[in-house]
Amino acid sequence: MTITTRTIEYPADGLTMKGHLALPAGDGRRPAVLLGPEGTGLSDVERGRADALAELGYVALAFDLHGGRYLADPEEMLARCMPLLADPGRMRAMGHAALDVLRAEPRTDPERIAAVGYGTGGAIALELGRDGADLRAIGTINALTTGRPGEAARIRCPVWAGVGSEDPIMPYAQRDAFAAEMQAAGVDWRLVVYGGALHAFHHPTVDHTVRPGIGYHPRHARRAWRDVVDLLAECVPVHWSLSR
């Protein structure tokens, strides 16, 4: 299937963000996916996933975190992302800025949007849900973040989350807290634990020598991607849009 792509600039967090928009073939409206990157920022990995979603028939926007920069230095990345992750309002503003861009795209069916994110991008997707955003599904990997008390009850869609069993950044206590929050809020939620996987196991370019506890797991990366695609097929199926 022939797709088209382009860079979309938009303001957020005091920066000019540079998102990657991928459009499926045709000219009709399609369900859409907002795609959030790891804390290092938008890379060819997320751009490739947006392209893959477009090949499946989705409008996909991989959003930016750092004004077009990729923060390969761990210390620089943490210096920017840790304050961001501690500020739900800031995360929500960044998420809504990208979501508004996706909704404004003429090919997007505004009633059929899902948010999928990795790491910091996944935390932003969850905060959109806690803010009551009109989403049909939320999927996250390495982002079992919890929100302010009671706000998870505003999530209006199923939530799927994936995590590596050996992820030191998302340990058992964090998993339990996330599960307790979702359950108490009455959310339709699922948590998949990928045995033996570290943090950022889905990201081919990561290297555990850069930071302990981080590493790529090819088999589980493929499985996690299939799980994400299955979530989208269940909650925002392309065939539904095509048959309207």
Rank of each mutant, 00 (worst) to 15 (best):
Met1Glu: 12
Ile3Asn: 06
Ile3Phe: 10
Thr4Glu: 13
Thr4Leu: 05
Thr5Val: 14
Thr7Gln: 15
Thr7Phe: 11
Ile8Ala: 02
Glu9Met: 01
Pro11Ala: 13
Pro11Met: 03
Ala12Phe: 11
Gly14Phe: 12
Gly19Asn: 05
Leu23Asn: 07
Ala25His: 13
Gly26Asn: 05
Gly26Gln: 08
Pro31Gln: 08
Ala32Met: 07
Ala32Asn: 10
Val33Pro: 00
Leu34Tyr: 11
Leu35Gln: 03
Glu38Gln: 13
Thr40His: 12
Thr40Gly: 08
Leu42Ser: 04
Ser43Phe: 09
Asp44Pro: 00
Glu46Ile: 03
Arg47Lys: 15
Arg49Asn: 00
Ala50Asn: 06
Asp51Trp: 09
Asp51Glu: 15
Glu55Phe: 04
Glu55Gln: 15
Val59Pro: 04
Ala60Pro: 04
Ala60Ile: 03
Phe63Val: 02
Asp64Thr: 02
Gly67Ser: 05
Tyr70Asn: 03
Tyr70His: 14
Leu71Met: 11
Glu75Lys: 14
Met77Arg: 15
Met77Ile: 02
Ala79Asp: 14
Arg80Lys: 12
Cys81Leu: 05
Met82Gln: 15
Pro83Glu: 08
Pro83Leu: 03
Leu84Gln: 14
Gly89Leu: 01
Gly89Val: 01
Arg90Ala: 10
Arg90Gln: 07
Arg92His: 09
Gly95Met: 02
Ala97Ile: 04
Asp100Cys: 00
Ala104Gly: 14
Pro110Gln: 13
Arg112Gly: 01
Ala123Pro: 04
Ile124Gly: 01
Ala125His: 05
Leu126Ser: 05
Gly129Arg: 07
Gly129Glu: 06
Arg130Trp: 07
Asp131Glu: 12
Leu135Asn: 02
Leu135His: 06
Ile138Gln: 07
Gly139Arg: 01
Gly139Ser: 12
Thr140Cys: 10
Thr140Trp: 08
Ile141Pro: 00
Ile141Met: 09
Asn142Ile: 00
Leu144Thr: 06
Leu144Val: 09
Thr145Trp: 07
Gly147Ile: 02
Gly147Ser: 03
Ala153Gly: 15
Arg154Met: 03
Arg156Asp: 05
Cys157Asn: 12
Cys157Leu: 10
Pro158Arg: 12
Val159Ala: 10
Ala161Asp: 10
Ser165Asn: 11
Glu166Thr: 03
Asp167Thr: 07
Asp167Met: 05
Ile169Leu: 14
Met170Lys: 07
Pro171Lys: 08
Gln174Glu: 13
Ala177Lys: 15
Glu181Phe: 11
Met182Val: 09
Gln183Met: 07
Ala184His: 14
Gly186Trp: 10
Arg190Lys: 12
Leu191Ile: 13
Leu191Lys: 12
Val193Thr: 15
Val193Lys: 06
Tyr194Asp: 00
Gly195Pro: 02
Gly196Met: 06
Gly196Cys: 06
His199Trp: 08
His203Asp: 08
Pro204Asp: 07
Val206Arg: 04
Asp207Trp: 12
Thr209Met: 03
Val210Phe: 11
Val210Gln: 15
Pro212Asn: 11
Pro212Gln: 11
Gly213Cys: 04
Ile214Lys: 06
Ile214Asp: 01
His217Asp: 14
His217Ala: 08
His217Ser: 08
Arg219Leu: 06
His220Tyr: 11
Arg222Glu: 13
Trp225Tyr: 12
Trp225Asn: 01
Leu232Ser: 09
Pro237Cys: 02
Pro237Met: 04
His239Ile: 05
Trp240Phe: 05
Trp240His: 13
Ser241Tyr: 08
Ser241His: 10
Leu242Pro: 02
Leu242His: 14
